[in-house]
Amino acid sequence: MSGLNLKLSLFFFLSCVLGIVSAQLSSDFYATSCPLALTTIKAAVASAVLQEARMGASLLRLHFHDCFVQGCDASILLDDTSTFTGEKTAFQNVNSVRGYDVIDNIKYQLEVSCPGVVSCADIVAVAARDSVVALGGPSWTVQLGRRDSTTASLSSANSDLPAPSLDLSALITVFANKGFTAKEMVALSGAHTIGKSQCANFRTRIYNETNIDSSYAKTLEGICPSVGGDSNLTNFDPTTPDSFDNAYFKNLLGNKGLLHSDQQLFNGGSTDSQVTAYSDNLASFRDDFAYAMIKMGNLNPLVGSNGQIRTNCRKVN
């Protein structure tokens, strides 16, 4: 290769690299434009979780349900209008996903101190991390600089979010479609060590499945009758429901997974060994969960001039 061609190749290579780098997120994105952004979010989340521990799980789930549809772009926060259909009425979101008011409160505070600077998508991502920390879980560095979408997809929300009825092979596929390995899928499922689920999501399991501890099933029958009570709630983890630990995996070993999809992770399949490993090693689960959350936060973010910074998270500017 001639010297000129080599220089041209190097130029184009560096241009591509710099272009990629400029489009990436960074941990100090708001360091000068809104230096109190992270402390504002942390304080609001800590207050919300202190009032109701379940809110920690809800804010974590809100981030997950946002990122799995169109990427981490706050599309899930958009309200329906007469001319716009959002994602809030998707099968896995309607009457289930919550925490919108907490995000609204944080956004209001940031609009007062730093108007038009901090995206709703970044607020959701940071709130998820701070919620886990508030309940005793691991921390991780949240990369920032996402922008908010002006669109949403009800159809993608209905097709891309995992349902509680999925078998292991389907779960692996759903997560693989987003770039996650089976190991990462198991780690992310460990989020069910906190939070609650509605009777409608686990009724079929407790009345029709055999791979469930009999005494556990009997207890759940008292919460979830065979008919009615669809919205009755119970903890995913019956032992330490408000602590982000590895009890979820220990429960699976005893056939005490609440959802069908939970117990599928330990049911004679390819992920049994990973569940066992996490049940034995809390540190390993914490590390892998944090890594997987960083990866999830990088799912197709809008950056640069794409999208917008919504002044109201519920509607486009």
Rank of each mutant, 00 (worst) to 15 (best):
Ala176Ser: 15
Val132Ile: 15
Ala292Ser: 15
Thr173Leu: 13
Asn158Lys: 12
Ile223Ser: 07
Tyr248Ser: 02
Phe68Leu: 11
Lys107Gly: 06
Pro35Cys: 08
Asn235Glu: 06
Gly136Leu: 09
Asn95Phe: 05
Ile223Asn: 03
Gly19Lys: 01
Gly116Thr: 11
Val303Lys: 12
Lys218Glu: 15
Asp167Cys: 08
Tyr207Met: 11
Phe249Trp: 01
Ile103Val: 15
His63Asp: 07
Tyr216Asp: 10
Leu265Ile: 14
Met1His: 12
Ile172Pro: 03
Glu221Asn: 13
Met55Gly: 01
Leu161Met: 11
Gln308Asn: 03
Val124Glu: 10
Tyr30Gln: 04
Ser243Ala: 14
Leu220Gln: 01
Glu184Phe: 09
Phe244Cys: 02
Lys315Ala: 05
Gly229Pro: 10
Ser189Gln: 11
Phe175Gly: 03
Gln143Asn: 07
Gly56Thr: 02
Leu50Asn: 13
Ser2Gln: 10
Phe202Gln: 07
Ala277Thr: 00
Lys315Thr: 05
Thr40Ser: 05
Ser197Cys: 09
Asp28His: 11
Leu25Lys: 06
Gly222Gln: 10
Ala44Phe: 06
Ser82Cys: 05
Trp140Arg: 02
Gly297Trp: 04
Leu302Pro: 07
Lys315Phe: 07
Lys183Gly: 14
Ser96Met: 15
Asp122Trp: 00
Met55Asn: 03
His260Lys: 15
Ala163Trp: 05
Ser284His: 10
Asn246Arg: 01
Phe175Ala: 08
Pro35Ala: 09
Gly195Glu: 12
Lys88Asn: 04
Phe266Leu: 15
Gln143His: 00
Gln70Ala: 08
Phe266Gly: 07
His65Thr: 11
Val142Lys: 02
Ile76Glu: 08
Leu265Gly: 14
Leu18Cys: 10
Ile194Ser: 13
Tyr291Leu: 15
Thr85Gly: 07
Leu253Asn: 04
Ala53Arg: 13
Gly136Arg: 08
Asn93Cys: 12
Ala48Tyr: 03
Ser131Val: 08
Asp66Gln: 10
Thr311Phe: 08
Phe244Asn: 01
Leu60Asn: 04
Ala283Ile: 05
Thr210Trp: 00
Gly228Ala: 13
